[in-house]
Amino acid sequence: MSAKPLPDEASAGAPPDKRRVRGHQPKRVIGYRGDRILMHRAMRRLAFPLSRWVDVLGIPLALTIGYCAIWPMVAALWQRIIGFWNVALEGQVRLAAVKALVPGFGSIPYPHSDAALPTSVQWLVGMIVTLVLLFGTRFISGRALPLAYWLRFIGVVQASAQFYFFIWPASFPYDGGGSIGSLMQASVVVVLITPWLYALIYNVLDFGFVRKLVLSVMGMAYLTVFIPFQYTLASVVLLKGSMLWYPQIFLLWAVFLQFGMLVGFYAWAMSWKARGAKNAT
């Protein structure tokens, strides 16, 4: 009884296109159920025609120039919004101005409040809030667990502020008015880089010129309206709660929050169907 030939020996007499070469097996394209295994989108090459450079460079450049041109109207809008809250809050938050970091922008209006260092009562209230954020969230579970993690992170940031103001309260280098002015300066820069950010992560895709333009305009317009309300509220928080809450505002509720909103707009825009996917099955 003859022994069965080895696999390599059995394929030796087969045609060249039928032979299996060890280490060079053909790629598997059929799944175990018989369906075709499609290439993952992360491994596909992005089609980038030369005309798309208009979307990547032309849209952000035009919007940046346009925003610089309408900046006097934006500054006037911010003055009216802050002025309204100045009257509504009976002068507790005043309208002030700081020199812009962007050349040619002149000054930036911002809400000014006379926030002070925390008193012993304010520090104690902050400590209670911190303990609730750190240990009270242990009762949050299930689908709300990501919320618990976020609240604990807020608690960790506030715990560091509580420790600092307990040990070195007099050495805190910032004041309520000037700090908000600096944050407003940074926020203007965020508005200006918004179309360039979308140009790098969205305009390179095939969503059409109009959709790319709408996304950038939408993000810039939203931030333009949101910023004066955001920092007016921050000024009130610092006025009522003291500078104890400034690290919280600076790290989580200023520019970080603005970028979070831009990411939200981007996620929504990514749900729009690309032009090449309109007729896809």
Rank of each mutant, 00 (worst) to 15 (best):
A234P: 01
A269E: 09
S113L: 10
G260F: 14
L257S: 11
A267N: 10
A115M: 07
F229N: 01
S51G: 12
A116E: 11
S51D: 09
L101D: 04
W53R: 01
P15Y: 06
I59N: 00
M220R: 00
G208K: 11
A159W: 04
R22A: 15
L124H: 07
R94C: 05
S120A: 15
T137P: 08
V191F: 06
Y174R: 11
P247Q: 04
L215T: 02
R33H: 14
L197T: 13
W268D: 05
Y67I: 09
A14Y: 15
M73G: 07
V54Q: 00
L46K: 06
A280C: 11
K4L: 14
V54T: 05
L77F: 15
Y174A: 06
S2P: 13
P146L: 01
A144F: 11
G241Q: 10
G208I: 02
I180C: 07
I59G: 02
A170P: 04
S171E: 08
L239R: 10
A116Y: 03
Q230P: 09
V204D: 05
V236L: 15
V74C: 13
C68V: 14
T194C: 08
L238M: 14
A12P: 00
P16H: 02
T194E: 07
A267Q: 12
G23M: 14
Q122H: 03
V156M: 03
L89K: 07
L134E: 10
G176W: 01
S120R: 13
V255G: 05
I201F: 02
A88T: 10
A47Y: 12
V93I: 15
L77E: 09
L147W: 11
A116W: 02
G91L: 11
Q25E: 15
N279V: 15
S113C: 14
R152I: 08
A148R: 08
V156P: 06
A10H: 02
F105M: 15
R211W: 08
R28Q: 10
L213E: 00
Q158M: 10
T194M: 02
I227C: 07
L77W: 13
P7W: 02
A115C: 05
L223T: 04
L46A: 00
A199S: 14
L131N: 04
V263R: 06
I227T: 07
I128E: 10
V102G: 03
W245K: 04
P228A: 10
P228E: 00
Q122R: 01
Q92E: 10
W168R: 15
L38S: 06
D35S: 13
S179P: 03
M127P: 05
Y164V: 01
I70Y: 05
S179C: 06
Q185D: 05
V255N: 01
V93P: 09
P169L: 04
M218C: 11
I154W: 00
L38A: 00
V56Q: 07
F153G: 09
G13I: 00
D114K: 09
V217E: 01
M43I: 05
R44Y: 01
A10D: 04
F165H: 01
H40D: 06
I108H: 06
Y164D: 02
S120Q: 13
Y266G: 06
R41H: 08
V190R: 09
A76Y: 07
F259S: 03
I180A: 04
W150E: 08
G241Y: 09
G106F: 07
I201G: 01
L262C: 01
R19N: 08
